[in-house]
Design a protein around this nucleic acid. Structure first.
Lengths: 354, 354
DNA sequence: CTTTAGCACTTAGATAAAGGGAGTGCTAAT
DNA sequence: ATTAGCACTCCCTTTATCTAAGTGCTAAAG
C-alpha cells in the first residue's frame, strides 16, 4: 500500500521533530509542524495508520509517536531532503582539512577527529590497503663511521627510513655494494619472498655481509608489515554523552567501551557495500550487538589509485541523517580529492630517530 | 599535635577501605579492619578526633567517614605501604612495552593506552622537547626525472623525508649542487634563522635555483616545527565510567570533555615538580577547575639525554595510590630504559609518501 | 583516665501513594 | 472526510512514610 502524500508529510514532520528534540511527537505538534491545515484529530487518524503500517512506534499508550527503524529507513531512502551545506560549513570543513605533512595514518586519525567535531558524533575511520606492497628501491646514506640511514621506497611511493648502527666501520664502496645487492635482489618481492631470498643467501655469503643485508631487509619487511596492517581509529567517543539517548550510563557504557577498545574495533565487522559510496545502517540493521540502538553512516574515500578507506559516523538512531550524510559525503569527497592523483599529495612525511 | 599510632592505623584502615569500596566507612567496620582489639565506641571517639583534625570528613551527620584531601595527603606521604608489584604485573608491563619500530609520538600514544589498561584509569602523556632543534644534514635522492626525495636529519638524530616533485627535469650535477648549498648554508640554524637566510638568498640567486632550495628548506622548517610542538595524548578516557564516583554523568562529563578536548589538554597546566620524579596532586591541590574532585599521579621519564616526558594517571581522589604509584613508577622507569642511551633505541621510523 | 555498652537522634535513600499532564482513541456532529 | 469533545491510559513528579546505618552522648565498668 502506497503512502499518500499527506502521510509522507506527517511522517517526515514526526521524524524531523524527533531528530531535533528526542521527544515523542504528539498529534498536536505535528499539526503545526507539518504545515497541513487540518486538525490534530485528523492527524491522529493518520498517525494511527502509520503506526499500523510499521513506520511509527508508541513508547506507551498515551505518549506521542516515535519513528520505527522502518520509518527511518523510508525517511533516508525517500523523504529526506538533500541537506544544503552552508558556505560556512564547507568553509569549516575545508579549513579542517588543511592538513600538511602528515603521515597517512595520522591524517586518517586527524580527519576522524575533525569530522567528529563537525558532526557532533563519534567517528571511526579506517583504511583498507592494497594487500601486496613491495619495495621499489633502497638508498643508503652514510652518516657516521658506524651508522647509515636506510631509505626504503615502496611501489606505493611510501618512503620510510631508519638509522642503522653497525659494530664495524663501513667504507663507501662497501655501502655501494650493499645498495646494489639490495636493489637487485630485494625489490618487487612480497614479504615472504624477501624472507625466502634472504634465507637462501645466508648459505653462500660472507657472514659479515649477510648480517648487513639482513639488517636492512628486516627493516624493509617490517615496513611492509606496518603498511599492510589495517587500523581503525576512533574519535570523539565522548560526544555520545551529549545526546539524550545516552544520558543513562547503562546505554552509553557498552557502546563507549566497544568503540574505545582497539581490539574490538580492529575487527569491526562493518558490512560496507562498496557499490554505493554512502552506506547507512539503521539500528537493528547492525549485526553487531553493541550497535543495536545505534545508527552508522559510512562513506568511502579513495587514497590514490590503490587504496580505499571508510570513514563513518556513529550516533543514536535518531540522528540527523540529512545533515550527517551531507557533511560526511562532502568530507569523504574532500579526502579523496586530497589524496587524489592529479594534485600534489598531502606530502606525508617520515621520521626515524636514533 | 602528633598522631598516635592507633589513630594512624585507623586512618589508614578507613582510607584503604574507602579506596576499595567508595563507600563511607563506619566505626564498626573500622573496628574489624584495623585489627585493633577495641570496640566500635572507642573507634568512634578516635574518628571524631580525626575529623576535628581535618583528616576525615562526614558526608552528612549520620554517615560513616570518608578521607579528606588532607587525609589522602597524609596517607600518600606517610602511611601508604609500598605496593609490591607481582611477577605477573611486571611481566604484563614488560610485554606491553614491547614496542618496535614506532615513531616517538606514536610510542607515547601507545604507552599511554597500555598504562591506561594496566591501571584502569585514564592516562595522559606528553613529551617536553628540546626547544631548539636544528638540521644536521640534508641528503637528496633522485627517484625519477622530475622528483627526488629530500632526507633531513636533525641534531637530535630524527630523520624525516619527503618526496619533492619538480616541474623541470633535474640533472645529477644540479642535485649535487643543491645538496652542497643546503648542507653549507642551512644546517645548525633555528627555524627563524633559516627563514632569514632563505630570504636573503632570494635576491641574488637564479629564480629557478631559489625555487628548488626553498622547497627543501620549507620542508626542513616544517619538520623542525613539527618536532617542537608539544602534544598531549590521552588514553582510556572511558575508564572513568567504571568508577562509581563518575556514575552520575554530571560528574563525568566535564572531566571527560576536558580530557578529550585536544585544545584543552594541549595547554594542560600541570605543575610538575621536576626535582622528584613522582608527583601526586590530590583533589583541590589541582589548580584546574575540572580536576577539583580528581587526583593526578604523574611520573617523568627521560628520552635520551635531551628530552623528558611526563606520563600521568587521572582518577578519583579515592584512588589506589599505592598500586598506581607502583605501577606508574615502574612503567616510567621502563620507558626511560627503553629510550635509554646505552641500548638500541626503539628505532623510530619514518615515512613519506606520494 | 580509658574503654565500653546502651540508646536517643539524625539523615540519606528506598518504597509507596497521590496528583498532574500529555496524548490517544473513540463517538458524534459537521 | 474532517473535526470537536471527552473519557481513559500511563508516565513522571511530588509528597509522605519507613528503614537502616551510623553517630554522639551518657553512664557504667575496668
Amino acid at each position: 500500500m502506497e503512502l499518500t502524500e499527506r502521510k509522507k508529510r506527517i511522517l517526515r514532520a514526526i521524524i524531523e521533530s524527533y531528530i531535533a528534540t528526542a521527544e515523542p511527537v504528539g498529534s498536536k505538534a505535528v499539526a503545526q509542524l507539518a504545515g497541513l491545515d487540518v486538525s490534530s484529530a485528523t492527524i491522529r487518524n493518520e498517525m494511527s495508520d502509520l503506526t499500523d503500517m510499521g513506520y511509527l512506534e508508541q513508547p506507551h499508550t498515551s505518549a506521542g509517536r516515535i519513528p520505527s527503524p522502518a520509518g527511518y529507513r523510508l525517511y533516508v531512502n525517500e523523504l529526506m531532503g538533500e541537506h544544503q551545506l552552508t558556505m560556512q560549513e564547507t568553509q569549516r570543513i575545508n579549513d579542517a582539512l588543511e592538513l600538511k605533512m602528515e603521515e597517512l595514518d595520522r591524517v586518517i586519525d586527524k580527519a576522524g577527529k575533525m569530522l567528529s567535531k563537525i558532526s557532533d558524533y563519534p567517528v571511526f575511520s579506517m583504511t583498507a590497503v592494497k594487500d601486496v606492497v613491495t619495495v621499489r628501491r633502497y638508498d643508503l646514506l652514510m652518516v657516521e663511521e658506524n651508522a647509515f640511514i636506510a631509505v626504503v621506497m615502496t611501489d606505493t611511493s611510501v618512503v620510510k627510513n631508519k638509522i642503522i648502527r653497525i659494530p664495524d666501520q663501513l667504507s663507501d664502496p662497501q655501502l655501494q655494494m650493499l645498495s646494489t645487492i639490495l636493489n637487485s635482489s630485494f625489490t618487487g618481492l612480497s614479504r615472504d619472498e624477501m624472507a625466502q631470498v634472504l634465507e637462501k643467501m645466508r648459505a653462500h655469503s660472507a657472514p659479515g655481509a649477510f648480517q648487513l643485508i639482513s639488517l636492512v631487509v628486516d627493516f624493509a619487511i617490517q615496513v611492509l608489515g606496518e603498511l599492510r596492517k589495517q587500523t581503525v581509529h576512533t574519535a570523539g567517543i565522548t560526544q555520545l554523552l551529549e545526546h539524550p539517548e545516552y544520558k543513562s550510563l547503562d546505554k552509553a557504557k557498552p557502546l563507549m567501551r566497544y568503540l574505545s577498545d582497539e581490539d574490538e574495533t580492529a575487527r569491526l565487522p562493518i558490512p560496507f557495500d562498496s557499490n554505493q559510496n554512502m552506506n547507512i545502517l539503521i539500528g537493528p540493521e547492525n549485526i553487531n550487538e553493541a550497535f543495536r540502538d545505534t545508527s552508522v553512516v559510512m562513506a568511502s574515500y579513495d587514497i590514490g589509485d590503490n587504496m580505499r578507506g571508510v570513514i563513518g559516523v556513529v550516533g543514536p538512531t535518531r540522528m540527523d541523517y540529512a545533515k550527517v550524510t551531507a557533511r560526511l559525503s562532502y568530507f569523504a569527497d574532500s579526502l579523496t580529492r586530497m589524496f587524489g592523483k592529479g594534485e600534489l599529495p598531502p606530502a606525508l612525511n617520515i621520521e626515524d630517530q636514533e
